[in-house]
């Protein structure tokens, strides 16, 4: 596979959210607005790429039976670094995303890519894979956030486009499930049209 197709595979064909249905908790919880979704996506992209790189570097040295604990420690370390950096430089966003930053540790996408890809492939390929999946996740979260923001608070990226409060339910929990469900339907339709 060429480097470019490694990158794009995570965006469309193996989109973590719409196709693999991984990492649902942050997807549903942090997409109350487009900017929040984007922030969460980028945070995950960072952890995913860094942990993929480190894990592909050390994979050959790690005994098979302690593989998973080692991966978890590596991922948790990067998540903590991210937490500290965000507290220092983007405190507002950190406060909004709250508990879902530490929960990147248990996001199945990160451990999934580490186990399924990074542990068996070269450093550059793993980095590419991490960036690709990360971008796919970020795009998905931004789109969900955008739809929920348009419907739920009548604004786009924080800018009001009409003088109205929007349909409250879309910002709250039920809206998250329903918007994601319908977007998945749309994604399935488009994919079957293309192929």
């Amino acid at each position: 596979m060429s480097k470019l197709s490694l990158l794009t595979s995570g965006i469309i064909k193996n989109n973590p959210t719409f196709v693999l249905v991984l990492g649902m908790c942050p997807t549903l919880a942090t997409t109350t607005s487009a900017i929040n979704g984007f922030g969460m996506g980028v945070a995950t992209l960072f952890v995913l790429t860094m942990s993929n790189i480190v894990i592909s570097l050390v994979a050959t040295q790690v005994p098979d039976k302690v593989r998973i604990p080692v991966y978890i420690v590596v991922i948790a370390a990067f998540v903590t670094i991210l937490q500290l950096l965000m507290q220092a430089f983007t405190p507002g966003l950190y406060a909004t995303l709250g508990i879902f930053i530490p929960l990147i540790v248990v996001n199945c996408i990160v451990l999934g890519r580490a186990e399924a890809y990074a542990s068996k492939n070269s450093v550059t390929d793993s980095a590419m894979d991490g960036i690709g999946s990360g971008i796919g996740f970020t795009l998905a979260l931004t789109v969900i956030g955008l739809v929920r923001e348009i419907l739920g608070s009548a604004s786009i990226f924080g800018v009001k486009f009409m003088d109205s409060d929007g349909i409250l339910a879309f910002v709250l929990a039920p809206g998250a499930f329903i918007v994601l469900g319908y977007l998945m339907v749309l994604f399935n339709k488009l994919k079957s049209k293309i192929s």
Binding site: A176, G181, M184
Partner: peptide, 21 residues
């Protein structure tokens, strides 16, 4: 067909969440 699997599950969960509200 397009709703089968996860999408319909998510929409159902949405309605369940609505009733829990």
């Amino acid at each position: 067909k397009a709703f089968q699997g996860t999408p319909i599950a998510l929409i159902t969960a949405g309605i369940l969440a609505l009733s829990f509200m």
